[in-house]
């Protein structure tokens, strides 16, 4: 919400539209941030209070302060950063591979009936198959370690990306394609100038889903795939050692990581298709 006051006297532009300058209260700009900070502050304080009361066994529910201490110490003594960086790197590489494979294949499936017919059964099977089911096979093939962890990320992220891109192409308004044909666009031009821009929001939605699924895949790989690397390993170790503060610290890191990625995609989305956002509003 923005608070507006009286506009300055109208300035008439060449096209005859009246443009006024509006003033937005200085507080409004910071309000979102202020509310978020306050909200989180209250959350952690409540956490601390509840934990101190020891209504719940401290073994499962540490104090917020202890959690932050574990987080701080973990970064200070170098137990967290290598694992975080391992997970993040793996994840981003996996996501990039998924996008590079998923987007073109999805577009192809949306545009070509034959490609759709041939690929559909596999894509849908892989989209609905729980990822965990693949772990034993992947371990059998690749053993423990990076290759296997990367593979599970790609297998998790690539199919939602594919399916969304395919769906996006199918929503392109036929009259836009006809307009392309009337005004002389050949097939590649129609793809480049009509279908792809129209589908862009779907591509981004697909990547968003890919992020969510990919994170799950990443954790499965790190938790079940062994290898002694990544945030999953950190979780596993903290659990074994009954180190509740570290366990919670890792969970917070995971939450921050996924929220950060989703926010980055939102930012990208707004830049990629402003016309859609405004049309929706």
């Amino acid at each position: 919400m923005t608070e507006t006051t009286q506009g300055t006297p109208g300035i008439e532009r060449a096209d005859g539209r009246q443009i006024e300058t509006i003033h937005v209260s200085r507080f409004a700009r910071f309000r979102t941030i202020a509310i978020t900070v306050l909200n989180l502050g209250v959350f952690f304080v409540l956490w601390e209070v509840v934990a101190r009361a020891e209504v719940i066994n401290p073994l499962f529910f540490p104090k917020a302060g202890d959690m932050f201490a574990a987080l701080f110490n973990g970064f200070a003594d170098g137990t967290i950063w290598p694992q975080l960086s391992h997970s993040l790197t793996n994840f981003l590489i996996g996501l990039a591979i998924s996008a590079v494979i998923g987007i073109p294949v999805g577009l192809l499936m949306g545009a070509s009936k034959v490609a759709d017919l041939i690929l559909s059964p596999y894509v849908w099977a892989m989209t609905s198959l729980p990822r965990v089911a693949l772990i034993p096979l992947l371990i059998l093939i690749m053993g423990f370690g990076n290759a296997m962890q990367l593979t599970i990320i790609v297998l998790s992220a690539v199919f939602p990306i594919m399916v969304n891109c395919m769906a996006g192409v199918k929503t392109v308004e036929p009259s836009l394609i006809r307009a392309g044909e009337v005004f002389g666009a050949n097939r590649p031009q129609i793809y480049l100038k009509v279908i792809l821009p129209y589908t862009l929001p779907f591509v981004i939605a697909g990547v968003n889903q890919g992020i969510a699924r990919g994170l799950v895949g990443m954790l499965i790989g790190e938790l079940l795939g062994g290898g002694g690397n990544g945030l999953g390993y950190l979780l596993d170790k903290a659990g074994e050692q009954f180190d509740a503060p570290m366990l919670y610290a890792t969970l917070i890191l995971l939450a921050v990581m996924s929220v950060g990625l989703v926010q980055a995609m939102r930012w990208l989305e707004q830049r990629a298709a402003p016309w859609r956002d405004i049309a929706r509003a």
């Binding site: 308004e173 009259s175 836009l176 006809r178 307009a179 392309g180 009337v182 005004f183 002389g184 666009a185 050949n186 031009q189 100038k193 009509v194 821009p197 129209y198 298709a273 016309w275 859609r276 049309a279």
Partner: peptide, 24 residues
Amino acid sequence: MVFQDYALLPWRTVERNIRFAMEN
């Protein structure tokens, strides 16, 4: 052709929509 539903490219400005007829 002039279409009933306009069939303008929503991500293009007015100018670039009109150019579309000449650039292909």
